[in-house]
Structure formats: structure tokens, C-alpha cells
Computed example of a mutant assay.
Amino acid sequence: MPGKSVLFHIDDETRVATLTLNRPDKLNSFTREMHREMSEALGQIEASAARALIITGAGRGFCAGQDLADLDFTPGSMSDLGGLIEEFFNPLVRRLEASRLPIIAAVNGTAAGAGANLAMACDLVIAARSASFIQAFVKIGLVPDSGGTWLLPRRVGEARALGLALTGEKLSAEKAEAWGIVWRVVEDGELQQAAAQIASQLAQQPARAVTAIKRAIRAAATNTFDQQLDLERDMQRELGASPDYIEGVAAFKEKRAPRFEGL
């Protein structure tokens, strides 16, 4: 079972899973053990009947990225940061990107470094008004990782991405919403409820279509226009033969709410 630095539960009624980074005294910064616990938790969630996932942080922060205290800074030694990225952070963001589940980051405070990029690797970001996003890497002589150099310019454009990465400037939740990082900003006390409501709504959507939409939107970043048209055609062909499509059309004709069951 996952340990104390990562907590999760699945609501059997709504089929919404909530995963909480639980090192509040360290702003939920990652250690190797926390990565292992998160991987195990995600495995259990993905194998369950959950239809949506919320990722949030305990306490006053979402995630401050890597816990530098978990690295080796003894004289004469040098931590292999590339190895750390390859073993832990890259598999994590790849897993989120490939997940069948719609994933909501409920950012309840500081999202710094890899923590900011973890949030952007989710499908939707809901932020408390007091939340902030910081590409803090330059302040310790590093480059944004965990997908940051790919995700950030696609969310905010090259000029803003360079400005944030080169200065390490803190970005408020309101500006992050205006710039396209955040889907919605809510009052601090309303964050968890707002995230739960959106996740519950997504959990009721046709799961096959949700997964396909995620794949299609992500593929558009590298596909040509013709390739994207072909992908849309192939996806519609597959989804048009699914029970969810039949149910959706029937519900529309009968003027009732659809009951989607497929995973």
C-alpha cells in the first residue's frame, strides 16, 4: 500500500479518485520514496473503476518540485540529475499524459519547479486564488524539466515561456488563467469542491471519447493538418461503432440524460 507521503481514495459513488501529495512541511516536494509511492498509487487508481482523477497537495502548497535534501551534496560527490529525471520525473509525466483518465490538478498553493510542470501535465488545472506558479530552475542553475520546456511554450507562447524560465518570476493564479495555464481560478475555500464537481462531471462522460479527445489534442502539437484530419477520421470511425455513441444518440432523441458505462 502507498505510504504516508502520498494518500489517495476513490469515491465509489462518483468514481472520482483523489491523490494527495502529503509532505506539507516540505511543500510536498518529491523524494525518491514519494515517487515510488505515487507510482504505486497511480497503478491502483488506473486498475480501479475510477473515471476521473484529482491531484492536489496537502497543506499550503501544491508541490515545490524536487526536495534538494534528498540529493547528495557531500563534498566530492555529484548527484546525477539526468538519472533522477529519467528514473522518476519523466515516467511520471508520461504516465499522466497517457492515462485513460481525465486528470485535474487542484493547485492549492505554490507550484514550483517540477511541481508547476506536474500541474501542466494534467488535463485541466483548477487553481486557488492564492496559488502561484514558478519556473524556479534558473535560480539553481538548471533548465525546466518534467516536460516544462515543451508544455510551457505551448500554453503561454515562446515569449512568455522564455520570460518565466529565464527570470524565475512568480506567476499569480489570475495571470496563469489569463495566459492559458489554468482552466479556472476559484476562491481558496472553494478549490476542493470545485475540483470535485468538475471531476464528477468528467466521470459521467463517455470514457472512450474522453481518452480519444486527450490523444487527439495532444497529437495536434506534432501532427500536420492532414495527419490530424486522418486521426480524427479514424477516431470517429472507432467511436461511432461504440455502445457509448449508440447510448448518446438514443438519449438525445429521447430527451434524457445519457448513461455511459464503457471504460
Rank of each mutant, 00 (worst) to 15 (best):
L96V: 01
R51E: 05
C122M: 08
E46K: 05
T14H: 06
T167I: 02
P102E: 04
G157I: 07
A173L: 03
E187C: 05
V210Y: 00
A131F: 01
Q192V: 03
R154S: 02
F62W: 08
Q197R: 12
E169S: 14
F133I: 02
A159L: 14
K214Q: 04
K214T: 00
T211Q: 12
K4T: 14
S132P: 10
G43W: 03
L166W: 09
D80K: 09
F88R: 12
W183D: 13
V185C: 10
Q193H: 06
I45C: 05
M120D: 04
A165F: 00
E46P: 11
L162T: 13
K139C: 05
V143Y: 04
R60A: 14
E232F: 07
A257D: 09
L19K: 05
D80I: 14
I10T: 09
A203M: 07
L118V: 01
S99K: 05
A165P: 07
F133Q: 08
D67I: 04
L92F: 10
F8Y: 01
G3A: 04
A251P: 07
L166C: 10
G157R: 11
F252V: 08
R32T: 15
E37Y: 10
S242F: 12
A131V: 04
I104F: 00
L53P: 13
R215C: 12
D145W: 07
D123Q: 12
M1S: 15
I181E: 06
L42S: 06
F137S: 11
G148M: 01
D188R: 04
D226L: 09
G3L: 02
F225A: 15
Q66N: 01
S130R: 13
N28A: 00
A52L: 06
G109S: 07
R237C: 11
I45R: 06
P75C: 10
V210C: 01
P206N: 05
L27Y: 10
S5C: 13
A52Y: 03
G113P: 11
M235A: 08
A50Y: 09
T56S: 02
V93C: 07
Q227R: 12
M1V: 12
A209N: 02
A178G: 06
Q201E: 12
Q192F: 04
E33W: 06
A207D: 09
L81M: 13
A112R: 12
I104T: 03
E86I: 06
A136I: 05
F89W: 14
A17E: 10
T31H: 08
P258I: 03
E87S: 14
T74G: 13
L151I: 15
